[in-house]
């Protein structure tokens, strides 16, 4: 009886440990960088005004994330930053207003930053895919707040396909969350329109192994 319990306990421990990271045959500490010369990494944002919807992109993304592949929850750390000047909404006048002192003030606060401090609720969705809630400090417009955002990581080992993008292993990172403008002292008027209080932000970035 004691033997059965021991086996069950061991199996449970093994399962819970593997659920904390990838189970794709890779082990050890890995560091990925999000800087992409071609500007393919991007954050997109969506908002509404009484007159129309606003879609935008920001391609000036940089940052790193590092973790132990088999135990992400306890070892993850890193940061992502977005250049405010790389933001585009499809209308030049609106872009310049977005970066002006009345809005994001690109001159005084040139970047939006997320400092990753940990990850919780880590779930293994496939051998190379995990999801969870990333926690960290989000800085926008010079104001820093602790936030938790849902995130999905997909780990691809180097192959002929991945080499087309970059050498080495790749990490696909996807996250979608809302940012409340008033929390960060941003006025939500843009060219006479009242922009919705919550901006929907989506991160679609690929990390290349350092």
């Amino acid at each position: 009886m004691r033997f059965i319990f021991s086996v069950l306990f061991f199996a449970l421990m093994t399962f819970s440990l593997s659920a904390q990271g990838f189970n794709n045959g890779v082990s050890g500490e890995k560091t990925f960088t999000f800087f992409d010369k071609a500007g393919r990494n991007q954050a997109t944002f969506f908002s509404t005004t009484p007159l129309e919807d606003i879609n935008g992109t920001a391609n000036g993304i940089d940052g790193t994330v590092s973790f132990d592949v088999t135990n992400i929850a306890k070892t993850i750390k890193g940061h992502v930053k977005v250049e405010v000047n790389s933001m585009q909404t499809g209308i030049d006048l609106r872009d310049s207003h977005l970066k002006s002192p009345n809005w994001l003030d690109a001159e005084t606060h040139p970047e939006i930053r997320f400092e990753l401090t940990g990850m919780k609720d880590v779930k293994s969705e496939a051998d190379n895919k995990i999801s969870g809630t990333a926690t960290g400090n989000f800085t926008l417009h010079g104001v820093t707040k602790e936030i938790s955002v849902p995130v999905t990581f997909i780990y691809l080992k180097e192959s002929e396909d991945t080499k087309k993008r970059a050498p080495g292993d790749l990490l696909g990172v996807n996250s979608k969350f809302n940012v409340k403008l008033s929390d960060y002292g941003v006025q939500n008027d843009i060219i006479g329109n009242k922009v919705a209080e919550n901006i929907e932000v989506t991160f679609n970035v690929v990390g290349t192994v350092k």
Partner: peptide, 22 residues
């Protein structure tokens, strides 16, 4: 004068990401 178009290559699908380009 610009429109956002969603693009997703085969590798993007594997990485679980979608890109938008102007």
């Amino acid at each position: 004068y610009k429109m956002l178009v969603e693009t997703q290559s085969e590798l993007d699908k594997q990485l679980g990401i979608t890109n938008k380009e102007w």
